[in-house]
Simulated assay, not measured.
Amino acid sequence: MAPKDSTREAHFPSIEKKHGEPMKYWFAVMKKLDSKKYPEQIAHLRENYGFSQAHANALVMFSRGSVSSRRHETSADYFKSIKPEQAKTMKKIFKAIQSKFPKLELVIAWNQPMLKNGDEYIFGASAATNHILIAPWDQQVLKEFTPHFAEYRVNKKTIALPNDWPVDEKLLQKMIKASIKK
């Protein structure tokens, strides 16, 4: 399980414990891999030392100067980092949901805005290059509402909407209501 601390260093005690070497040793290994690309560094740690993806990523990214996996502290920070049209649509999506369900908390998780009901994630959204992805966390809800999104691309866990999607407040609210009931 990933530590709640988003710093790369939060993984270091687990790396030392699991692989039996101090971080000084692992930094020396990374120094030797300095000229390699990210995928090669990850593969080397996984194949030669049995690192998990999370531990390999933490070590590689720390060695490359990234000390935290957190890119956005707030939803406002997230919205500033995406195209204005996407930000406008996503803000409308979250506003439509929170107007009906004000107790849902808007948080940043996995570097994107998510709605939580207590400790449970209910809904998330993210901006891709040419579309916005929305994701009800409950797969039954996604399956149930797929027909309502027939004109869009429905993936395994997400729905791809155009950046300028005319927000269907009632549909989103029904999805959230179904998610909360489950």
Score class of each variant (00 low, 15 high):
residue 64 R to Y: 05
residue 9 E to P: 03
residue 50 G to L: 00
residue 42 I to K: 00
residue 121 Y to S: 12
residue 70 R to C: 04
residue 124 G to E: 03
residue 30 M to L: 15
residue 80 K to C: 07
residue 51 F to A: 01
residue 68 S to I: 05
residue 133 L to Q: 13
residue 43 A to Y: 09
residue 117 N to Y: 11
residue 105 E to V: 12
residue 61 M to H: 04
residue 62 F to L: 01
residue 119 D to H: 13
residue 64 R to D: 09
residue 61 M to Y: 11
residue 32 K to R: 14
residue 84 P to Q: 06
residue 30 M to N: 03
residue 21 E to A: 15
residue 169 E to I: 03
residue 89 T to L: 02
residue 143 K to V: 09
residue 143 K to D: 11
residue 82 I to W: 08
residue 79 F to W: 07
residue 2 A to N: 15
residue 84 P to I: 04
residue 153 R to T: 14
residue 150 A to Q: 09
residue 125 A to S: 13
residue 98 Q to C: 03
residue 163 N to T: 10
residue 158 T to D: 00
residue 138 D to I: 04
residue 47 E to F: 09
residue 121 Y to H: 14
residue 28 A to L: 11
residue 98 Q to P: 07
residue 65 G to V: 11
residue 155 N to A: 15
residue 182 K to M: 03
residue 137 W to C: 12
residue 43 A to V: 06
residue 92 K to Q: 08
residue 6 S to A: 14
residue 166 P to L: 02
residue 127 A to S: 15
residue 118 G to Q: 09
residue 32 K to H: 12
residue 170 K to L: 02
residue 166 P to S: 04
residue 63 S to C: 01
residue 22 P to D: 14
residue 29 V to A: 11
residue 37 K to I: 06
residue 58 A to M: 02
residue 32 K to D: 15
residue 172 L to R: 06
residue 97 I to T: 00
residue 10 A to R: 00
residue 88 K to C: 05
residue 137 W to I: 12
residue 165 W to D: 04
residue 29 V to H: 10
residue 7 T to E: 08
residue 107 V to K: 12
residue 76 A to G: 08
residue 7 T to I: 03
residue 77 D to V: 02
residue 18 K to H: 14
residue 55 H to S: 07
residue 8 R to C: 01
residue 70 R to Q: 15
residue 142 L to R: 02
residue 161 L to W: 01
residue 168 D to A: 04
residue 175 M to K: 05
residue 94 F to M: 04
residue 152 Y to H: 14
residue 11 H to M: 14
residue 98 Q to R: 13
residue 147 P to I: 11
residue 109 A to R: 13
residue 142 L to W: 03
residue 170 K to R: 08
residue 125 A to F: 01
residue 172 L to N: 00
residue 14 S to R: 13
residue 43 A to G: 06
residue 138 D to N: 15
residue 114 M to A: 12
residue 1 M to E: 14
residue 76 A to R: 09
residue 41 Q to Y: 06
residue 98 Q to V: 01
residue 169 E to M: 05
residue 13 P to W: 13
residue 47 E to D: 15
residue 43 A to C: 06
residue 27 F to K: 12
residue 13 P to A: 12
residue 134 I to N: 11
residue 153 R to W: 00
residue 118 G to T: 09
residue 156 K to H: 08
residue 24 K to V: 14
residue 80 K to I: 05
residue 88 K to W: 05
residue 55 H to K: 02
residue 179 S to C: 02
residue 130 N to L: 12
residue 175 M to I: 08
residue 173 Q to P: 00
residue 164 D to S: 05
residue 34 D to Y: 14
residue 152 Y to N: 10
residue 152 Y to A: 06
residue 104 L to K: 07
residue 124 G to K: 07
residue 40 E to Y: 11
residue 64 R to I: 06
residue 154 V to C: 01
residue 118 G to N: 12
residue 109 A to M: 10
residue 174 K to A: 09
residue 115 L to T: 00
residue 135 A to C: 13
residue 127 A to P: 03
residue 12 F to S: 07
residue 116 K to P: 10
residue 14 S to W: 09
residue 172 L to H: 02
residue 98 Q to L: 01
